[in-house]
């Protein structure tokens, strides 16, 4: 499914967070959204999830999900958002419980999702016994168990230590290769964006519009950290974000 964001404006009370934001997210691509902190990245994600309604403008999804899809949209959070009194398998089962599935099909989906994220051994462990990386694998399994057409990720790997983060990013790409969902990933990690995105969208300072879009033309298999194209891209992205932050700072000074 692709996502069409058309001239969206959204405010919290008098604070305008998004203003005339338009963006096309093509089907089956991973798009990373970057921008100065507090610019409205997570708000955009919540709007796509349908958790809030934009003040004006439209957000459309187009295309038909595959017949395996139980629910078109799934989400992964930075703080994992696991249910602490449910085991790993029970957490993964949660989004299945309101669907009319046979017990067999339910178990098949749970185990297949756990296998995909390599957590079958920990199926019966409780979240507080797991490392950050394992908790986020649980979060990913819970998202993938419904075979979503769109996967939203809100800083999915920020709370995970560096070594584990790289492993998870690689595993995430493997999961995408299998499922080919449309991924929308909010992040502040420029390196991460150049590793996992087909396309990088940079938002301006608040009120956020689309400032720049980069296509990352390097195939995933070639994305070493020191790849010259990626390094140049990272520099360009950092430069733009710095500009936005500085411009925001000047506006504040001018106002006071």
């Amino acid at each position: 499914m692709d996502i069409l964001i058309d001239d969206v404006r959204h405010a919290y009370d008098r604070l305008i967070v998004l203003n005339s934001l338009s963006l096309d997210i093509p089907s089956g691509e991973i798009v990373c959204i970057l921008g100065p902190s507090g610019c409205g990245k997570s708000t955009l994600l919540r709007l796509i999830a349908g958790l809030e309604v934009p003040d004006s403008g439209r957000i459309l999804t187009r295309g038909n999900p595959s017949p395996r899809t139980l629910h078109p949209i799934a989400i992964v959070f930075q703080d994992f958002a696991l249910v602490p009194w449910r085991s790993v398998a029970k957490n993964v089962e949660l989004p299945l419980e309101h669907h009319a599935l046979s017990a067999q099909e339910r178990q098949r989906r749970i185990w297949s999702a756990l296998q995909q994220v390599k957590l079958t051994e920990f199926a019966h462990a409780y979240p507080n016994r797991l490392s950050g990386g394992m908790r986020q694998r649980t979060g990913l399994a819970r998202a993938l168990v419904v075979d979503p057409a769109i996967l939203l990720l809100d800083e999915p790997f920020s709370a995970i230590d560096v070594g584990t983060r790289e492993l998870l990013q690689r595993d995430f790409l493997r999961l995408w290769e299998d499922a080919r969902f449309t991924g929308v990933c909010v992040t502040h990690d420029v390196l991460e964006a150049t590793q996992i995105a087909h396309r990088i969208v940079i938002l301006s300072r608040r009120p956020a519009r689309v400032r720049t879009i980069f296509e990352v033309a390097v195939p995933f298999i070639d994305r070493r950290e020191d790849h010259p194209t990626l390094v140049a891209l990272q520099q360009a992205i950092r430069e733009i974000i710095r500009e936005e932050i500085e411009a925001g700072g000047r506006e504040l000074e001018g106002a006071s």
Binding site: V83, P95, E97
Partner: peptide
């Protein structure tokens, strides 16, 4: 109750009554 857990459940289309019963009450 963790706001993001509720948001997660809503994103997955879990009906409100079930969110109350399975997430908020416990």
């Amino acid at each position: 109750v963790d706001r993001n857990v509720v948001r997660m459940a809503q994103t997955f289309g879990i009906p409100s009554s079930m969110i109350i019963w399975k997430v908020i009450l416990p």
